[in-house]
Amino acid sequence: MVEKSQTAEVLTQANVSESRPVYEVGFHVAPTVGDDGVASVVAEIKSALGDAEIISEEFPQKMTLAYTIVRSETGKREKSTEAYFGFIKFALGREALPALQEALRANKNVLRYLVIETVREDIQAAPRRAVFASDRLEGETIKKPVEDAPVEKPAEISQEEIDKSLDALVS
């Protein structure tokens, strides 16, 4: 009986984690942190997630930003042209989200962040077909393969005919 109730409890917990909405936090770690400090910043973000179920994550990679991000910390303007970009996908209750946002905002090593609601499945998992965005044909037009023309077998020539033609040539 006890075992049964425990199983039921485990099932309920599984259902709760399944039913929780899935979010994804993308973030830029400030370049001032350096290569060695990125892991500690990620650990801080994960601790802010609390009891969230982490579905997938990508460790921050250094990248050049599309534009310079300027932020004024302690009365000084900080300009960043590169940062470490990473993301974590997780399932968490809606009520815990404001606390996470506040923790990210308070973290001075997080240059910028974005929390979005998403789906559990990996978005980029499915292979995509390459189709041009334009209606016009771009590149080379794919041509229908030309069917091989039937090879004509040379008609068999008898020995007599060969001799005749040779005689004609000699004489």
């Binding site: 993301f87 974005l114 979005i116 789906v119 978005i123 980029q124 995509r128 077909r129 189709v131 041009f132």
Partner: peptide
């Protein structure tokens, strides 16, 4: 239509897939 097959479903459009997004800019 043809181009729609490229993304197949709007859930596949991801803001991190910059190379895909650039095709539509």
């Amino acid at each position: 239509n043809k181009t729609d097959n490229y993304v197949a479903h709007f859930q596949r459009i991801d803001y991190k897939d910059v190379e895909m997004l650039k095709k539509f800019l």
